[in-house]
Design a protein around this nucleic acid. Structure first.
Lengths: 314, 314
DNA sequence: ATAAATAATGCTCCCAATGAGCATAAGGAG
DNA sequence: CTCCTTATGCTCATTGGGAGCATTATTTAT
């Protein structure tokens, strides 16, 4: 058909993006096709860099500038040959942060809270009931279905990644948790591939096509880990904000609540923000001072590191 | 010439590896061509995974198993078209840890201490004199050669990455430091490209071809960051070792000295090791107990995290 | 032998970071 | 005027980690 019979060591590059924004205290992700896909596009070789390639089609598709871009992972999917049936596809995924939402029409590029895909990851109002009620029991059943040594192994992994449903929750382990559920056949994506373990019905949470939910998990995990030592949330905030808004933003990303006074102490200890002089009383309660990020410090912390009151399990 | 006129969106994949081992308290890296290159090979599409591709040619080339493999970064070099002059090359680099050294003959695959490439990164015996004597002065000169605003910017970056030559050294910033030197035209690799800044002669440290020294810097940085929260040094140690040997290993990687008593406290607090019962008096001084890693805990920490007395600057 | 150097170990002290809460101030809604 | 909600200031207790003293056990030098 095509004039080029695709030499063996030649592949096509596909770029995937996890684009994150914050709206109404929800961490939003840009999706396509009714939420089933992450935006992705080919790497056109005229781009000098991979990053510039990403930026190009993302901005073309969303009409919004990307604040921060970071490479996530490169993956050669053995089960997804290119459409021409010849070349292998290597997908390179990126995490992108953007400040504003797509002003788009009703359809296609659509922002969705990432907790629709990973409802068990939201512990902002305390331990997610999903874990104790729905996930742990099914995982336990799965663990039972193995012989002694494998069972012990599975049980330990469950404990390490999901804790006990009330304590020992480590919000960074997004990817490990998804992979465990996948392996246990508790997400629809897994069942598609393995006709065998038709047993358990899936855990709540919207699936995606291909490995896109896995990529999303990777992005969330990376972002959650990152905010603990780099002030990247800066990229997601409007130019002015109150400290509570900032706290809610971090909580949205981390998926767990934080102590208000300690959060404030940490933030201004590090000199990350400065008051603009303005005051707002949009919310109820006592009016709050408005702040902005301090450019110099943010640049400095970009290399030196930040701290957030997020670390210990519980 | 070739029957396939290479369609535009087609690229060739090249795999690069930073292979690390520890010998005689030196962090060793496998190199080729008299130390000028990192091992690299093509990604043959018959491999199901990228990782398996890496493992395959690494083990073929070195005849040693890879303990731990981790993806580093994917990079499309705009300046290095494939040899056929048509396809773009995308290189995917990996970090690999191995316990044993190549038993190889005198030549080619050769292990070299990574401090030959980055001598300023070795602070194990205190502040590296190179930084204060050789690097900081030249960087200062470089900063002077810019107008006011850019100068301030450069000075801040110098301070952030190199500190002041005595304190505020952050061992993780290997890549940032290399990139700064590159930008300042203080490494030979940079001069090759820019004929202009022929000024300063380069800083000590052996260069590599292409961007391989940059990839190496990425690997070192990743490893240094990693040992602080994952017990990966486990992959580099022999089955039995003394606590001092373990400490020296970590110091070799981190490039800075550690407090002996505190190191021990931390290690056994976390239950990472257990005594084998053996005792050694290979070195001078009081004989030391031998330890081995505790498999269960190591697996557990692989997900949950570890601690090392490495964090603060100074 | 004896002294000196090198390592292994045990323990104490101190300080900075941080998790938790109490208390007070300042607006808006009924 | 009272209650509710949020902003802010401060205190307290705990802990993790940095430093260093002291002691013990061996090898090496004199």
């Amino acid at each position: 058909m095509t004039p080029s019979p695709a030499t063996p060591d030649t592949v096509a590059i596909e770029l995937n993006a996890v684009l994150v924004a914050l709206t109404a205290n929800q961490p939003q992700v840009l999706t396509l096709d009714d939420g089933a896909l992450l935006p992705s596009g080919p790497f056109a070789t005229e781009h000098p860099t991979l990053q510039s390639g990403v930026r190009a089609w993302v901005e073309r598709q969303t009409h919004h500038p990307l604040g921060y871009v970071e490479q996530l992972y490169t993956f050669a999917d053995p089960n997804r040959p290119a459409s021409d049936g010849q070349r292998r596809v290597v997908s390179i995924s990126y995490l992108g942060l953007t400040r504003e939402r797509l002003s788009a029409g009703p359809r296609d590029p659509e922002w969705r809270s990432w907790y629709r895909y990973f409802p068990w990851e939201d512990w902002r109002t305390g331990p997610s009931p999903l874990v104790a009620q729905s996930i742990l029991p099914r995982l336990a059943t799965w663990a039972e279905g193995a012989d002694a040594s494998a069972r012990r192994d599975r049980q330990q992994r469950i404990q390490m990644t999901f804790g006990d449903g009330l304590e020992n929750w480590n919000e960074d382990l997004v990817l490990q948790r998804y992979e465990l559920l996948y392996e246990a056949g508790l997400v629809p994506e897994a069942k598609a591939r393995e006709a065998k373990s038709a047993g358990a019905d899936p855990v709540p949470g919207m699936p995606m096509r291909h490995d896109h939910r896995r990529i999303l998990a990777t992005g969330i995990a990376r972002l959650r880990a990152k905010i603990k030592y780099r002030p990247v949330f800066f990229e997601l905030m409007p130019p002015e904000f109150t400290l509570l808004q900032l706290q809610r933003a971090v909580e949205a990303l981390a998926g767990r609540p934080m102590h208000k006074q300690n959060f404030r102490r940490l933030i201004d200890q590090q000199g990350l923000v400065e008051p603009t002089g303005g005051i707002t009383s949009e919310a109820r309660g006592r009016p709050a001072k408005l702040f902005r990020f301090r450019r110099e410090i943010v640049l400095e912390r970009a290399v030196a590191g930040t701290k957030l009151p997020l670390s210990r399990p519980l």
